[in-house]
Design a protein around this nucleic acid. Structure first.
Lengths: 217, 217, 217, 217
DNA sequence: AATGAATGAGCGTTCATTCAT
DNA sequence: AATGAATGAACGCTCATTCAT
């Protein structure tokens, strides 16, 4: 009884609302703001144009709502993979798959397209700044990594005076390298490339925070 | 033959060609591809619309030519600053101003706008990929840094097994952190922020390639 | 049964009927027929759009009903002022304030707007002709004036062979001069202007129907 | 060489300008401002819509230009009839045909439609006020009548202390009576009706300014 | 070569009206 | 009876492009 249209027909149907939003995400991400036409979005959603305006008022407001919805949808699902075992001393072996997951999330077509779109429209739609701050899905991974590094520091395995900074640098390196090499997500990257990017970054971070292998300082 | 227009009247005037390109850069960078109108570009250039078509054939070709011209113009001028003295052992002190220069270049309004525009239009204008590869003005700085790090390695001051990778990582870190914090160049960054970004990255690189201060390994 | 809505819920509520009419008058007079939207009228009336259609069937019928209602409302209230003392021989002094009252009625915002609206829509809504004939609120004043002039004639003070015609001419002169000078009620007229208009017309009528001051013919 | 298109083809063609204006007059006068569509005007003019915008910029500016052009066109041609012989003592016989001509001009379909349109749009297009003042084609007739009455006064045939006022009153009476009876030009008036209206007004004016037939005062 | 007038398609938006509740 | 969501057609206006000069 929840699937379609609870008490539908009279109140503004949430089903159509979602359909329009979904269509808007699809078309805006594919075409960009200017090229996307409200007609096309309405057609994809399977509703009349005025229904779109009834729900969202204007192309601009629809756009902002779509970006926000896409951001939330894109953020979720990234962490559904199992967290790797906390324990071992192989820090590079631990960080690399995490970096790969961040990278996979960032290069997913939807997330990458959303990222490009946000950058493209920042100057004409300053409200996107709000979206931007929360959008770096990688920031959640960043916190987990910071926690892990702090633990390694406490365990005496690494020397990490500022785990937050180190985690942020790791994530930035992974994300940026991936974006640059994939032309901001428009060109595919093989699994090997992805792993190599993550490992390179992991190695840098580990090197920078290792005790001296000889004297232990 | 380069003067201005001396033989004008029948051959395509190079002066008008440049004026159109300049106007196109201005308008495309400000408005984006779709929002920019050929009318507006012709008006800014002070020529008739058909002249634009005579020179460039279509809006799309004009766009690509404008991006290419902007890329060349943007790349130059970044290195006009004197290279810092090569010598000293203060590697962070050496890398930080270089990073700051990279960052200043990247955040200049024209370069940042060009970067956003390229990202925005990558999917609709695949030819921009050509532009992209050569556009990272930072790559020149990268080579200089790699050379410097290799030298430090040879001098026994640092241990840099892969100077190219380290230099690239440094430049990526600086550029990305700057872009993220400035919303891809749409928000200003203070001098202190810029310096701090560069120093953070420099410190990471240096930490990662230092000899152990105690045992020298 | 006239209270408010006591039996509401199934029979058409007269209260809503009146509210819709009132809202329609307001919006049509302010915006004109084409510019007025049924949405706006429904919103002003505080009812749903279908309620409007349930009561009036179409925008056009609502319009005609609104004009008719406005005409009736506008006609009333004009004569609530006391009739001046019948007696004196100062005919100009008697006619002038009557003319001023006619003029004030005609220039009241609602009456003037209704007049403009009727003129504007005459060709597209021929039914407005019915409204038109009865709308000249001044016609009631005209009859009173005719009676007064006839009385002056019987008393030998004036020579008015056709009091109806004279009264009509007086009212026409006052109304037209007022409308022309106020741009059909869109520009205000001072009290002095109003009085002067009425007096000018009164003087003409009196001159035209006076006995010769010398020989009495 | 002047008829069509002097050096046409390159500069904005005056012929199309006039065609658009003519079409706009036709459609605006027939439909009113809101109902008239730019598409319809362009179609009637036989040009593309953008041509209309190239020439006039917006519907509103086209409207104002059309009203102005219609006013000028409407004003001319009214006076092409021969002025009646100045002489005689039959003032009513002299004024009546003049009044009839004024009335015929005012009731011509174009002039009447323009008048209605101007009244209808006064509040939404205040610039029409400029048009308004000069539009009363009757004002020229008014001056002629004033001159005639002044002459009669000098000749001792009438006593007209303020010929300008008297002429204005005459014209107002004729015009208003004609408009009211013809529903502002939307219903035809027979020749007899027209003459009767003019004569009624003429008689009033003459009565008001006659010397006493008995004592001559 | 260069102009800008002109085109036809398309844009975002709003309308009077009907449908489903 | 009454709601407001939904529709399809139109609106004013702008666009990239071509034509005629």
């Amino acid at each position: 009884m929840d699937e379609v249209d609870i008490s539908a027909g009279h109140r503004r149907s949430p089903a159509k609302h979602r359909a329009i939003l979904q269509a808007a995400i699809e078309v805006f991400l594919r075409e960009g703001y200017s090229r996307a036409s409200v007609d096309a979005i309405a057609a994809v959603a399977g509703v009349g144009k005025q229904t779109v305006y009834g729900h969202f008022g204007s192309k601009e407001r629809l756009f902002l709502a779509a970006v926000e919805a896409a951001r939330q949808a894109g953020g979720s699902g990234a962490e559904e993979q199992e967290p790797p075992s906390e324990g071992s001393g192989d820090v590079v072996g631990y960080l690399t798959p995490i970096g790969t997951r961040v990278l996979n999330s960032i290069l997913s077509p939807e997330v990458a397209a959303l990222h490009r779109l946000t950058i493209a429209e920042l100057t004409h739609h300053p409200e996107l700044q709000r979206s931007w701050r929360g959008s770096e899905a990688a920031q959640e991974a960043s916190k987990a990594i910071a926690g892990y590094l702090a633990e390694r520091d406490r365990a005496g395995e690494l020397s990490v005076p500022d785990p937050g900074r180190a985690a942020r640098q790791f994530v930035r390196l992974v994300a940026t390298e991936a974006r640059v090499r994939s032309l901001y997500g428009t060109q595919p990257l093989t699994g090997e490339e992805r792993t190599a990017i993550a490992r390179e970054a992991a190695e840098l971070i580990v090197r920078a925070h290792s005790h001296c292998p000889e004297c232990g300082s």
